[in-house]
Write a protein that binds this DNA or RNA. Structure first.
Length: 480
RNA sequence: GGCCCCAUCUUCUAGUCUGGUCUAGGAAUCCAGAUUCUCAUUCUGGCAACAGGGGUUCGAAUCCCCUUGGGGCUACCA
């Protein structure tokens, strides 16, 4: 049997990282088994579905590099559902229910008060099982809702991750399956589509376990063969509940915006609930694809551990070729780029960006940090406390002398050999003479960057250029 | 409340199916040290767990049961 899998997100919000992880596992399973990966937009809820969210899902998948081979929208398949609804109605497996929301509500409250499972069995005066009522309602079908006539009994299925799971279907009553003959509800639409699209394996979140028996009942009534099921563990927030907005960023594209790399996200997400069984944690897509198997998927939920993501993203940033990293960083430097455009130096900007990105490559955990960390390159005057210029127990006079010495040394280097190598050669020789290198290098670095933590002074000086370096040394002296 | 799922360090997890090689391994975080003008990188070391109780067995993190804890679902949302 050929493998066909799908993700079936509803476009009612930005793509959740949980959806992304589910997509990833499906994609991996398809790739591993030379199967087909289907994207099905579940937009049967017309009120809540938005086109922008569908776009966000598509963007997210593309960003992660999860390509799909077939695309569907449930809103474009109403005729298919109508067909099945009719079939169900005709065979007596489904019926119109005319109970009012108030009646339903009351019934549920009563059942809960009696410690029973809340369920609606469509009996009573305004139920279809009352022939007189049914007759009276004939011709007014549009005001009711279509429910599935639950035959009751045990429903069992074998979950590829969890093993055998059994439900007592009587506990969920005559559940609703469609608003009218042309408007299916989730359980019906999903079941029909999985079958119509010949989905072989339904790999979805654990939150769908309790939907499975309902879908199974529908298949049974229709005489259809259900797919295989695998329910993935949930992605959790730090408080162990289902990850949501209140835990921080829950949307995939928010992580893209923060400057996480897609490969890092891919690697991180796959390790939420799966691992290859060895001690290697940074794996390429190819390695992951090759090693992936449903058998090694975890049963318990996994907390979305942002510290580990940060670490992993840093690993990937370090591995990224500098030209590519520069291109990726450009948007975060955009406002600085604009300024230099005004200065008429736009053509140089990309080369300039490349140099500062190279400096920060070892220091970044996410791309969005680049602007703040390198702002000293773009400022005309630096703001910092003069005390910062002092290395250990230096006094004002000593700092001043050091700055003058530095001015002299840097001033003596010809413009065309003003490179970090040359700077290092000359300054290190001097620092060696002093003994405590920090006495010379610390004031230099602070004068150039205005920060207590920054890249080294030689490479910063080279990028800044001789003129700016000398200006900053003079500026530092003025502070004292 | 009802039903279902789950349970190894703070977190991600290896080990569980096929009991002994587990004085329970790796990674993130944190701490200490080395390198270093600072930060970062890198390297070394450290802290830290089988939820509890019963079984089964010569032997249980591994198998069974109970308890406890956590989570999910319980819509004319998906």
């Amino acid at each position: 049997m050929s493998v066909r899998v799908r993700i079936a997100p509803s476009p009612t919000g930005l793509m959740h990282v949980g959806t992304a992880r589910t997509a990833l596992f499906n994609w991996l399973f398809a790739k591993k088994n030379s199967g087909v990966f289907v994207l099905r937009i579940e937009d049967t809820d017309k009120e809540r579905s938005k086109n922008e969210y569908e776009e966000n899902i598509i963007e997210g998948l593309e960003w992660l590099g999860l390509d799909y081979q077939e695309f569907y929208r449930q809103s474009e398949r109403t005729e298919i559902y109508a067909n099945y609804i009719k079939k169900l109605l005709d065979s007596g497996s489904a019926f119109y229910c005319y109970h009012s929301p108030e009646e339903l509500e009351r019934e549920k409250d009563e059942q809960m008060a009696k410690k029973l499972a809340p369920r609606h069995k469509c009996d009573g005066e305004s139920g279809i099982r009352n022939p007189a009522f049914a007759k009276a309602m004939a011709g007014r079908q549009e005001s009711g809702i279509i429910r599935f006539k639950n035959p009751g009994g045990k429903v069992k299925f074998y979950d590829l991750i969890r093993g055998e799971i059994e439900f007592d279907s009587g506990l969920f009553g005559d559940f609703s399956i469609a608003k009218d003959e042309h408007t299916p509800l989730y359980n019906l639409a999903a079941a029909i589509d999985d079958c119509e699209m010949k989905i072989s394996h339904v790999i979805r979140g654990e939150d769908h376990i309790s939907n499975t028996p309902k879908q199974l009942l529908i298949y049974q009534a229709l005489g259809l063969v259900p797919p295989k099921y695998a329910h993935l563990p949930m992605i959790l927030g730090t408080d162990k509940s289902k990850l949501s907005k209140r835990h921080g960023a829950a949307a995939l594209t928010e992580y893209r915006a923060m400057g996480y790399l897609p490969d890092a996200m891919f690697n991180f997400l796959v390790f939420l609930g799966w691992n290859p069984g060895n001690e290697k944690e940074i794996l390429s897509r190819e390695e992951i694809t090759e090693q992936f198997s449903l058998e090694r998927v975890q049963k318990s939920g996994a907390v979305f551990n942002i510290e580990k993501l940060d670490w992993m993203n840093g690993q990937y940033i370090r591995k990224t070729p500098i030209d590519e990293l520069t291109k990726l960083s450009l948007p975060y430097l955009a406002s600085e780029g604009k300024k230099s455009e005004i200065d008429g130096k736009k053509s140089d900007f990309e080369e300039f960006a490349r140099q500062i990105v190279a400096l920060e490559q070892l220091r970044l955990t996410k791309l969005s940090q680049i602007a703040e960390r390198t702002e000293f390159f773009f400022k005309d005057t630096l703001m910092y406390d003069k005390e910062l210029l002092k290395w250990k127990a230096m006094n004002n006079e000593e700092v001043k002398e050091t700055l003058e010495k530095l001015e002299e040394l840097l001033g003596g280097i010809p413009e065309k050999v003003y490179t970090k190598e040359k700077l290092e050669e000359i300054l290190m020789a001097e620092a060696q003479k002093i003994g405590d290198r920090g006495k010379l290098l610390w004031p230099l670095r602070v004068a150039l960057t205005g920060r207590k933590a920054s890249p080294g002074p030689f490479e910063v000086a080279e990028i800044l250029g001789k003129k700016k370096c000398l200006a900053r040394l003079r500026e530092a002296k003025r502070l004292l």
